[in-house]
Simulated assay, not measured.
Amino acid sequence: MVTSGQNAQTPAPPLTTSILLALAAVYVVWGSTYFGIKLAIGTLPPLGMLGLRFLLAGLLLYPVLRLRGVPNPTPAQWGWSAAVGLLLLGGGTGLVTLAERQASSSVAAMLIAVSPLFASLFGRLWGERTSGREWLGIGVGLVGIVLLNVGELHATPLAAVLLVLAPLCWTFGSQWSRRLDLPSGLMGSAAEMLTGGAVLMLLSTLTGEHWRQPSATSLWALAYLVVFGSIVAYSAYMYLVAHTRPALATSYAYVNPLVAVLLGLGLGGEHLGAYGWTGLVVITLGVLLVVWPAQKPAA
């Protein structure tokens, strides 16, 4: 992870193979985590499950990196990692998980889809500029999310508030992280998961969450979230935050609902009507507007 963000004069980087692979990881894997979280919290406490998820992911990743000679984070880097981990993992993922007890995954996906808009707004606080086409893509994507969820807006007021606060925490933490002295590369992800996971476990204890015998389904879902949702996708996301523009790094928020719906159709026997299919097409158009490389001016 780099320690400083792109400034307003820096041109958008090209879509390299690494960036495309990272986008594929956050698009597909994080889209499936809505379903995975639902399964995991069936018999596991929400905050405790998340804390365990990120602690296990960090404990798997950290020693491997140290054995490969990656430097240990400095005390200051551990502190900044804890702050970013609290915002992203505690405020972002944690609030979504709490909300999913009282809201459907489609509602969660819809409200999290405002992440690119928040990212662009926070980016402007630090001098980054959002192009007109990116604003158009953001608007088109939001329209698609609304179409996707017409008739499916079932959430308590508390869940709705949590799902608005979650992307605020996530995108602010993401943009702030670009200006902090954080460990580079995967060590940054490991440090944030270790510190964020520890904070979530503490919150689980302070809020009096109760643990009971977990089901095999919850354990398998937890294992998937640890390996793919955390180690693979989270590391890919932090790579995108460091190497791409905010609108592109958070464009996963448009594709995740698409993946979540397709999983529901394939595994949950759900039905998708005309509004839903139209929404998926509009979402895809919004992503293309954000992702498609800008034309270079003629020399």
Rank of each mutant, 00 (worst) to 15 (best):
H243V: 08
I138T: 06
L163F: 03
W30V: 03
L111V: 12
A198D: 12
S81H: 04
G279P: 01
G48K: 02
S106H: 10
Y252I: 09
S131W: 06
A298P: 06
L61Y: 10
F35C: 00
T3I: 06
L285F: 13
L125I: 10
G264Q: 06
V164T: 02
G266P: 12
L142G: 02
T207C: 09
T217D: 11
S4N: 13
S131K: 14
A76V: 15
A233T: 05
L59T: 00
V226A: 04
V70E: 13
G196D: 10
W80Y: 12
A24S: 13
A24G: 11
E128T: 01
H271M: 11
P71R: 09
A233D: 12
G123K: 05
L87M: 12
M49P: 00
S104R: 04
T10G: 00
N72Q: 15
Y62T: 02
A76R: 15
S177I: 07
L248S: 08
G196C: 09
P63H: 03
L147C: 10
P293I: 10
A99S: 07
G5V: 00
Y239M: 06
L111Y: 04
A8Q: 12
H210F: 14
E128V: 11
W126G: 05
L67G: 08
I112D: 15
R53G: 02
V140W: 01
A57C: 08
L50K: 06
W80V: 05
V227I: 13
A119S: 15
H243E: 09
A253H: 00
V150F: 06
L206H: 06
L200N: 04
P246F: 03
T93Y: 15
R179D: 07
T284I: 08
L136Y: 14
G69S: 02
G229M: 07
W80R: 08
G196N: 07
P257C: 01
L240D: 09
S105D: 13
L117Q: 03
Y224W: 04
T3V: 10
V2Y: 14
L21P: 09
L148S: 00
G139A: 14
L272S: 05
Y27H: 03
T130D: 09
L258P: 03
S4T: 15
L186C: 07
G85W: 05
L15A: 15
L206K: 11
G42S: 09
L267E: 07
T284Q: 10
A216N: 03
V255P: 03
S215P: 05
Y252T: 08
S32G: 14
G141R: 04
L125M: 15
Q77G: 08
P45E: 02
A40D: 02
L258W: 05
E134K: 11
T17G: 11
G127A: 06
T171A: 01
G208C: 15
W292M: 15
H243D: 02
S177L: 13
Y27A: 02
G123V: 05
S230N: 09
G141T: 05
G31I: 04
A221E: 02
M193V: 13
V291K: 07
G51T: 00
P214Y: 00
T156E: 11
L44C: 00
K38R: 12
N7P: 02
T217K: 09
T33F: 09
M187K: 05
F35L: 11
L147H: 04
G188H: 10
G51R: 07
L23F: 14
